[in-house]
């Protein structure tokens, strides 16, 4: 996959849809493209976070370690961004991410990611929207869990 193809892919991701092509090209150029085999781990819960990943192709599972073992809480597909929480909040990885099939990602370093967010408010807003949506989902799950538990 050439840089230009990567840029085409990025354009189709809602998060980046409003960013100029040249900027996306810079993002792709300054990021490392990485291929993963199925079941290879991108990062582990509790690791220090130094980069976020944009899924370009394939899929990956988000897993949370519980006493009962790993529980899959989400499935990532093309266009999803993962790993941004650890670099935004400077906390250890909150979950483990593992490829479920052959996977291609762009690895965006902490510095590049911050630059992206500060230079493009629209990216920041998209990320806020995504994070808010996740929070809402979590709340819904919590309500459901409490509701079941209470009733």
């Amino acid at each position: 996959m050439s840089l230009n193809q990567e840029v085409e892919l990025l354009k189709n991701i809602p998060l980046f849809s409003r960013i100029a092509t040249s900027r996306l090209k810079l993002l792709a150029f300054t990021s490392e493209r990485l291929d993963w085999d199925a079941s290879q781990t991108l990062f582990r819960q509790g690791d220090d976070g130094d980069a976020a990943y944009i899924i370009m192709e394939g899929s990956a599972a988000v897993l949370i370690e519980t006493d009962a073992g790993e529980v899959e809480v989400a499935r990532l597909r093309r266009g999803d961004v993962v790993g941004e929480i650890a670099i935004l909040c400077d906390v250890p990885r909150t979950a483990t991410v593992r490829a479920t099939e052959a996977l291609t990602t762009l690895r965006v370093t902490k510095e590049t990611f911050f630059r992206l967010v500060t230079e493009f408010p629209e990216v920041a807003i998209e990320i806020m929207r995504e994070l808010a949506a996740r929070l809402e989902r979590t709340n819904a799950q919590l309500r459901e869990a409490l509701g079941t538990g209470g009733g």
């Binding site: 040249s22 090209k25 810079l26 150029f29 300054t30 510095e111």
Partner: peptide, 20 residues
Amino acid sequence: VTMVELFADLPPDHEYFTQY
């Protein structure tokens, strides 16, 4: 052409120049 397209908008002291 690619370099001009990618880097022309960046301030001259931007670290990307030395890195990339």
